[in-house]
């Protein structure tokens, strides 16, 4: 099914919003407003935006740590102010400021973020089982970095999801670098999607810089899942522009990363690609583009201002008293 003009504009707008929020968070880190770290997702926005822009609110989403999940959570409906407030330790954050960056909002179907990579897979299968039992055609989407797909939890979860035909989507955001290691030296094959064959799960490789291509493949998989036809595996090829975390030495295998490689990928920036296409198709004009840009910038500036002004908890110890058990 072809995208409507509105849907295309929505995808483009979401790309820009995510980029602006990423920039806001980098700035917040460098000015000390974020006290720990930020793993920028610059250049990888098309994966999350393409996959999540048209999810239902009651669908479940497990996002990867890259970009602290903003290309997924912001798109799923979590306001930027709440994301920022959580990073700033404010009580208005989605987890009362307790989580640092582990975004969670069950009303939006975002159950949280695992501190150990690969922790999401079995949890997602459990939610897939719940969705299947509930029978409301919800889907469960897991988007993880390629490095994470090496975890044994993936194997165990795929077997379960495939055997029971659960409405799960496994999306590989392959940015080609795991920490400081190029993924090609730790993975035996070119495509992670090849792993799907062993489980009898349909698997596709898609250009992760092309938001429309990502959306198309993911939508096919979502439709399959909603039709009770079981899980799918989609590998999106993208590239990590920034270091593992902002401010960390940008090294590969102990040596500085070459700028040439980064430049090649900067030329395939997902926003530029989408912009070019929509201008050519006449969906957007230069004026529209500036308007979208300005709107997103305003949204993030205001979110930042409000979040920073939000209150800190007056009595941290009260929060900790409630930390362990529901009652």
């Amino acid at each position: 099914m072809d995208l409507t003009k509105e849907q295309k504009i929505r995808l483009y707008t979401n790309l820009v919003r995510v980029r602006k929020l990423d920039e806001t968070m980098v700035k917040a880190l460098l000015t000390g407003k974020i006290s720990t770290f930020f793993h920028s997702g610059e250049g990888q926005e098309a994966v999350g935006v393409g996959a999540c822009s048209f999810l239902r609110e009651d669908d479940y989403l497990f996002p990867s740590h890259r970009g602290h999940a903003i290309s997924k959570t912001l798109i799923k409906g979590l306001p930027a102010r709440i994301i920022l407030a959580e990073h700033y330790g404010r009580i208005t954050g989605c987890c009362d400021g307790v989580s640092g960056f582990h975004t969670c909002d069950m009303k939006l179907g975002i159950p949280g973020m695992s501190g150990t990579l690969g922790g999401h897979f079995p949890l997602a299968v459990g939610m897939g089982l719940a969705a299947q039992l509930r029978g409301k055609k919800q889907v469960v989407m897991v988007i993880e970095g390629e490095g994470t797909y090496a975890r044994g939890t993936f194997h165990e979860s795929m077997i379960m999801a495939a055997t029971w035909k659960l409405p799960n989507l496994f999306i590989v955001e392959n940015n080609q670098i795991m920490g400081n290691t190029p993924v090609k030296i730790i993975h035996p094959k070119d495509d992670f999607a090849d792993l799907g064959f062993g489980y009898g799960v349909p698997a596709k490789v898609v250009d992760g810089q092309d938001v429309f291509a990502v959306h198309k493949e993911v939508q096919t998989a979502i439709d399959r899942a909603r039709a009770d036809e079981g899980p799918s595996l989609i590998e999106c090829k993208t590239y990590r522009i920034q270091p593992h975390a902002v401010g960390l030495p940008d090294t590969l295998l102990g040596r500085p990363r070459t700028q040439e490689e980064i430049e090649v990928w900067r030329k395939r920036d997902p926003i530029k690609l989408a912009q070019k296409r929509l201008l050519k198709e006449g969906v957007l004009t230069q004026v529209d583009i500036e308007k979208i840009d300005g709107g997103a910038a305003n949204e993030m500036e205001e979110a930042d201002r409000l979040a920073w002004a939000d209150p800190m908890p007056t009595d941290p110890k009260e929060i900790l008293k409630k930390a362990l058990y529901a009652e």
Binding site: S35, T36, G89, C95, G97, V98, S99, G100, F101, H102, M312, P313, P316, K317, I319, L320, A323, L324
Partner: peptide, 16 residues
């Protein structure tokens, strides 16, 4: 450490 997971939020860790 207190009988509590270690919080990530920057104002809570010192209490644990």
């Amino acid at each position: 450490a207190a009988n509590c997971p270690i919080p990530a939020g920057w104002y809570l860790e010192e209490h644990v």
